[in-house]
Write a protein that binds this DNA or RNA. Structure first.
Length: 573
RNA sequence: GGCCCCUUCGUCUAGCCCGGUCCAGGACGCCAGGUUCUCAUCCUGGUAACAGGGGUUCAAAUCCCCUAGGGGUCACCA
């Protein structure tokens, strides 16, 4: 006898990128199915019943992000080599399943559990506003001629005649109990839920209807979703209790529900795209404050935007993400990441994202031999140990600083070769211009840079900043005026010249240790601290005060190159 | 506002179901010190919580009740 199959699903609506919270939902659905081994299946369904907002492009983007995270699906849309071997329960785009939904709408109509309603959206709006004015909650009043259990011929005839209408479900008179694996039993009193719409005027099903039909027909056994869906669940359960299958008459089953806690920003607000606008606005305002010459018009020109757009953006009447993105580059604003794509672009590793996400609302509850909590693990570990019982009930705040620390740890734990591969793959996708120059470097030089950059990288993107000094031409090094003023004082210049002289004597292939010895020797002969030599040299070679240890820095660009830079620096003044 | 859910360090959490081993453990952060030519890494130490109030009990973070606070949701969006 085969054990009961376990089927979970992630059902995004393709109206944008994959949100980081959605990724967690998908991850938990995936982990639960994988935990069941060969018995478990994880499915993707695209909920594109909102005609106005859905797009194939965003469906594709979401699937790509899931694949990037390592969340693979057994059933669902095919993307490259992912998602083959589907069971015959598709199609997986709801827009392609309209005939199925219509069959069930008619079915419910005949049972007297669904009826056409003819109020216009405007009428309902007005009724809602009136209710709000009296501080009452609007509930759709069931029309007097509607009697649950009786087919309403008059209404269906009007509908068939082409009169614009929606179809509503007649809620049962009794209350609804929802059994939730995380929250326990949740009760909803009779009359709490009104007769909701199951088919819109455009002929598309609503979310509530499509989800219930599809989950049944696709054999979904466990529904893991965010807690914001909890209040929808009585509708779904009522629908399940009213429906029987048209292929054989079996009653619909109610899946196991598990409503997961929500994820918020550190400030307690929702993680939303608007955060990007807020960050960009704050940064721009700060920049204008610091530099009175910076006008909205100037900022607009620098960002390639219309002046009016920038004005609106600054005034807060527009939160357009495109504006935030356009401003981020020229004004060096780090926009907060809220979608998986943002984290990808910022240089986070997928296995770190999933590890961190798994810790938001779940924990393995295990100690390692040294008594510390187990909190670093891979997807295989997650799949092996995941369970609904260990999902918490309280909401979590997303601490980007901790994520960054995890990412840095993962980079530190890699081999140099692996780091190199991961960086190149990332750069090819996100910084192709840099990637081209990086590949053009000679292999030994590249690996030298990689080695010294790695402990200084928390993200893959960080590498670009750390090795910047080595990527500019000798004659293009920009000397930071503040650094020059501080370190290229007369004694500093003198030390720099002395260093150059000894460096030249070392020959072109000197290694880091030999170069460090030169720094020490120059310091010793003038009775100076190491820093009094090292910093002027650092400025002369990199243009700034920050770089990896001098020996390695010089070795990474080569002695000849270092000498040219020093010479140019000394001549400049 | 109605309904529903939640509540351990600043943050993520362990412990709670099966009361004593918890003057509450780990991680990130923060602080201090060490290593050090800058930056980063690294090492050592420290900081900091059972929301409040009532019960029950020899004993409560753990069980019960109340209060407060936070969140979700009230669409022809999903």
């Amino acid at each position: 006898m085969n054990p009961e199959p376990i089927v979970t699903r992630f059902a995004p609506s393709p109206t944008g990128h994959l949100h980081i919270g959605g990724a967690r939902t998908a991850l938990f659905c995936w982990a639960f199915a994988r935990h069941a081994g060969p018995n478990g299946r994880f499915m993707i369904r695209i909920e594109d019943t909102d005609q106005a907002r859905s797009s194939d492009e965003s469906a594709r983007g979401i699937l790509e992000d899931l694949a990037w995270l390592g969340i693979t699906w057994d059933d669902g849309p095919v993307l490259g080599d992912i998602g083959r071997g589907s069971r015959p329960v598709g199609p997986y785009f709801q827009a392609q399943r309209l005939d199925i939904y219509n069959r069930y709408v008619e079915h419910l109509g005949r049972l007297g559990r669904a009826y056409p309603a003819f109020e216009t959206a405007d009428e309902l709006d007005a009724a809602r506003r009136a209710a709000a004015a009296q501080k009452k909650t609007f509930k759709y009043p069931r029309p007097a001629d509607v009697r649950p259990g009786e087919f309403n011929e008059a209404r269906w005839r009007r509908a068939a005649a082409g009169e614009p209408h929606v179809v509503r479900f007649a809620m049962p008179p009794e209350g609804i109990r929802v059994h939730d694996s995380i929250l326990g039993e949740v009760k909803f009193a009779p009359g709490e839920v009104d007769d909701f719409v199951i088919r819109k005027a455009d002929g598309f099903p609503t979310y509530h209807f499509a989800v219930v039909i599809d989950d049944e027909l696709m054999g979904v056994t466990h529904v893991l979703r965010a807690q914001e869906h909890l209040m929808n669940t009585p509708r779904h359960v009522a629908l399940q209790q009213a429906l029987t299958r048209t292929d054989g008459g079996a009653p619909f089953r109610t899946p196991v529900y598990a409503h997961m806690p929500l994820i918020f920003n550190m400030d307690g607000g929702k993680m939303s795209k608007r955060d990007k606008a807020k960050a960009a606005r704050a940064a721009l305002k700060a920049a204008m404050q610091k530099d009175p010459a910076l006008t909205p018009a100037l900022a607009a020109a620098r960002a390639g935007l219309a002046e009016s757009a920038v004005a609106e953006f600054l005034a807060g009447t527009s939160d357009a993400v495109e504006f935030a993105e356009a401003l981020a580059g020229p004004f060096a604003v780090a926009l907060p990441e809220v979608e998986v794509w943002d984290y990808r672009r910022s240089g986070y590793l997928p296995e770190v994202i999933t590890n961190f996400l798994a810790l938001l609302g779940w924990s393995p509850g295990m100690k390692s031999p040294d008594g510390k909590d187990v909190e670093k693990f891979d997807m295989e570990f997650l799949a092996r140990h995941f369970s609904l019982e260990r999902i918490g009930r309280g909401n979590a705040k997303f601490d980007r600083v901790k994520l960054l620390s995890f990412n840095a740890d993962a980079i530190a734990a890699m081999t140099d070769d692996r780091f190199s591969e991961r960086f190149q793959t990332w750069a090819d996708e996100h910084e192709p211009e840099f990637a081209r120059r990086w590949r053009a470097l000679q292999a030994p030089r590249r690996s030298a840079l990689l080695r010294l950059a790695r402990p200084r990288c928390k993200t893959l993107r960080d590498l670009i900043r750390v090795v910047e000094f080595a990527m500019v031409a000798d004659e293009a090094v920009a000397f930071d005026p503040a650094a020059v003023a501080k370190h290229l004082t007369p004694p500093g210049r003198d030390a720099l010249a002395a260093f150059a002289q000894r460096l030249r004597a070392l020959g072109p292939n000197a290694d880091a240790a030999a170069i460090d010895a030169v720094v020490a020797a120059v310091a010793a002969e003038r009775n100076a601290k190491l820093g009094e030599v090292a910093q002027p040299v650092r400025v002369g070679i990199t243009g700034g005060t920050v770089s990896p240890p001098l020996g390695e820095t010089v070795a990474a660009i080569g002695v000849a190159s270092a000498l040219r830079r020093i010479e140019r620096c000394l001549q400049a003044r």
